[in-house]
Amino acid sequence: MQVMPINYYIFLSVALFTIGIVGVLTRRNAIIIFMCIELMLNAVNVLLVAFSKMHHVAAFALDSSTTAGTEAQLFVFFIMVVAAAEVTVGLAIIVMLYRNIHAVDINFLNRLKH
């Protein structure tokens, strides 16, 4: 079987996460920012799955009936559940915002101060 260093997945994940952050920082469109947050979440998911697999492979060498790493994958599943709920509410808020200020520009959000 092919040996694949975990570092590659770490670097992929860090790169995706950073791109997400740059997106959050540079864009003013609330929907794009939201999408970038999803991107960051997915970067974390990839990393979690990779670690789960690494953990499992290490344990498998000792015991072929092991279930080590299952929890991490379930954790990813729950992250997706929460993300889906979050997106629902988040988009509802954005729609609401658009209805009020007729824009999805976060720079206009400072009106909340007043």
Partner: peptide, 11 residues
């Protein structure tokens, strides 16, 4: 600091 600019907060 509390400009209300979400971007600056994130930064």
């Amino acid at each position: 600091l509390q400009s209300g600019q979400v971007g600056s907060y994130i930064l």
